[in-house]
Structure formats: structure tokens, C-alpha cells
């Protein structure tokens, strides 16, 4: 059955089973390869995208649960003011090591800053704890979030 999705502002139609996870629809059917597969169980955050601005784990979100929510992926996140600031801070501080988790990290960071423009360390830890970085780039993730928020680098 055809399903209509709105990805990064563009309407897209897919014809796949309704229980297919959004991650795989994005990656296989729509060509958005930015969101990554890490665990398939909502445990690592590599697949994080936004549904109406909320960070969600697309690997455990079937497309029949998406409805008409606006989907934002890493490919489209820099279109917003906050998204652009976060992306620029990520490049400026050279946050990635291997880079595999970073799309998910950025999506969680943008969702945090959209909801809370001046997060404390505790706010950052709490919002970002669902995103695993196996290389442990966590210091720079914190710094980049603070830089994007307009603050100074505490560490």
C-alpha cells in the first residue's frame, strides 16, 4: 500500500510494508544514507531522525506510525537556523573520529537546542545519553553543543 512521507520538506511516496522501519525506508527506498544502522533496537542512537522536531530512533519506528509527521534527516537538518549552527560547530571543532554515530549525535543535539537554547552540562548529558559514540568523542560533542548555543567552551 502506498504511503506518503514528508522528508526534509519534500513529499515522497513509498510502496512498502507498513511495518518496515523508517530507517530502512529512508536508506533503501528513498536514498537517505545519512541515518545509520547500529543496533536495530533503539539502543545506540545512530539512526536518530526528527519527527516534527522530536528526536526519534528510526530503526524501531515502523513507517505506519509516522503518519503525516514531518521527517528531518541529517541531510536536511542544516536547513534550520539551529541545525546550521550545530553542523558548523561540529565541523569547526572536528568532532568526528570514525564518524559513524555523528549523524545521530547531531540530530539529538539539534532537538535539544531547539527545545532548550542554553542547556546545562546535566541537560546535555541527559539529552545525549541515548547516543553511543564508540570512539568516545563526548568532550567535543559537549563543546560543539555549547558553541552552537553561543556559550563558551567550558572544557
Amino acid at each position: 500500500m502506498p504511503t506518503m512521507l514528508k522528508v526534509n520538506g519534500t513529499p515522497r511516496e513509498v510502496n512498502v510494508p507498513g511495518e518496515k522501519p523508517l530507517l530502512w525506508v529512508l536508506r533503501e527506498d528513498l536514498g537517505y544514507l545519512g541515518p545509520k544502522f547500529g543496533c536495530g533496537a533503539g539502543l545506540c542512537g545512530a539512526c536518530t531522525v526528527h519527527l516534527d522536531g522530536q528526536a526519534i530512533r528510526s530503526c524501531i519506528t515502523p513507517i505506519n506510525a509516522v503518519g503525516d509527521a514531518a521527517i528531518t534527516t541529517i541531510e536536511g537538518v542544516a536547513a534550520s537556523v539551529v541545525g546550521k549552527k550545530v553542523s558548523e560547530a561540529w565541523v569547526d571543532l572536528d568532532v568526528p573520529q570514525c564518524g559513524y554515530c555523528q549523524a545521530g549525535q547531531i540530530m539529538s543535539a539539534v532537538a535539544l537546542l531547539e527545545a532548550n537554547p542554553s542547556p546545562s552540562d546535566a541537560d546535555i548529558d541527559s539529552a545525549m545519553a541515548g547516543n553511543l559514540c564508540r570512539c568516545s568523542t563526548y568532550h567535543r560533542i559537549r563543546d560543539a553543543i555549547k558553541q552552537a548555543a553561543g556559550g563558551t567552551n567550558a572544557r
Partner: peptide
């Protein structure tokens, strides 16, 4: 900086799983 950093941040396909 890592030469791939801008592409990673933009979500460009770079990794093995991204092969198409």
C-alpha cells in the same frame, strides 16, 4: 581537521554500509 569531517556532518555516504 579530518578531511571527511564536512561530509560526515552533512550525512554523505562514506561508510561500507552506504555502498549502493
Amino acid at each position: 581537521r579530518g578531511p571527511d569531517t564536512p561530509a560526515i556532518v552533512a550525512g554523505k555516504p562514506l561508510f561500507g554500509v552506504d555502498a549502493v
